[in-house]
């Protein structure tokens, strides 16, 4: 019998349909325009800032020169406090303190949040027992808990990390939970038809399906965690970037305040972009919006 497929050929089946076009100027521009435009945009922004603060009648107490901010940032990031100093004026010291706290807090939040969310999604009893507490704590503004934790733990690093964990853990729990709950029914049906038992359903379908949700949760957790870092240090502590913001503003060193704010922006954007990249890497089938 003549194979029917011999008579019907799809264009899409032809591997020769994809042709190599090589590098063109247009293609190079298409790939680099994002970086080029953003760089020019930022350079213009800082030049305008510099001009406005140099020639405009602006009190440097409120808005320092951009160059002063960068200088403060450079000096602060390249010097360390001498051994045994009571207070460090080095941004790097405070940055390392905050960054270490943030990473510790995020690690603990993941260790609690990922299994917690997965269990809540996978077991309806655990879900119904835990969900009121999760929603209650997730909806409570975390800043309201700071005085309480200062009372419990004092002005310590443990207190700061606890605030970070409490800030970051809920988006991670809720996303992992939602990922499990929204796993496509037809994928589960397919796996069952082809012989999956309960454990296999979890490992082969639910977990890979939930992975990008977990990464989104971590991404939101980073944002919340950074708020937690700054809040905890503003309220109670003698080190960290939050403390440095307060201290530099109190001592009218506005250039330092701006330098720390810029550093926070850079840190936050780097971490969030890293998780976006990770999300696109592990789940290319989801059209991740590049905002």
């Amino acid at each position: 019998m003549a194979k029917v497929s011999d008579q019907i050929k799809y264009e899409t089946d032809d591997p020769n349909r994809i042709q190599d076009v090589g590098w063109t100027l247009k293609e190079i521009w298409r790939r680099t325009r994002g970086i080029v435009v953003t760089s020019i945009n930022l350079i213009i922004f800082f030049i305008l800032w510099e001009l406005a603060t140099t020639y405009g009648n602006i009190n440097s107490l409120f808005l320092p020169k951009a160059s002063a901010m960068f200088q403060e940032l450079w000096v602060g990031m390249t010097t360390r406090a001498p051994e045994g100093a009571v207070f460090s004026g080095s941004i790097l010291d405070h940055f390392l303190h905050s960054f270490k706290n943030l990473m510790t807090g995020l690690a603990i939040a993941c260790a609690i949040g990922i299994p917690g969310g997965l269990l809540m999604g996978g077991n309806k009893y655990i879900e119904s027992i835990l969900s009121p507490y999760v929603w209650a704590l997730a909806s409570l503004p975390r800043i309201a808990l700071v005085p309480l934790f200062i009372l419990f733990l004092g002005f310590t690093t443990t207190m700061q990390v606890t605030i970070i964990v409490l800030s970051a853990v809920f988006p991670i729990i809720i996303n992992a939970w939602a990922g499990v709950k929204t796993t496509e029914k037809s994928l589960l049906a397919a796996a069952k038809v082809f012989g999956a038992n309960r454990t296999q359903l979890y490992y082969k379908v639910v977990l890979p399906y939930t992975l990008p949700f977990i990464i989104s949760g971590i991404q939101q957790g980073i944002g919340r965690g950074l708020i937690g870092v700054v809040i905890a240090e503003l309220f109670g502590g003698s080190n960290g970037l939050g403390y440095l913001i307060q201290r530099s503003a109190d001592t009218f060193n506005t250039a330092m305040t701006f330098a720390v704010l810029l550093l926070l922006i850079v840190m936050s954007l780097s971490l969030i972009n890293f998780t976006r990249w990770l999300e696109a890497k592990v789940a290319p089938w989801r059209n991740v919006n590049h905002l």
Partner: peptide, 15 residues
């Protein structure tokens, strides 16, 4: 394994 199924929405694992 004696029965297999083809689904309307393909039900392929995207990863």
């Amino acid at each position: 394994p004696d029965r297999a199924m083809v689904f309307q929405d393909y039900a392929l694992l995207p990863w």
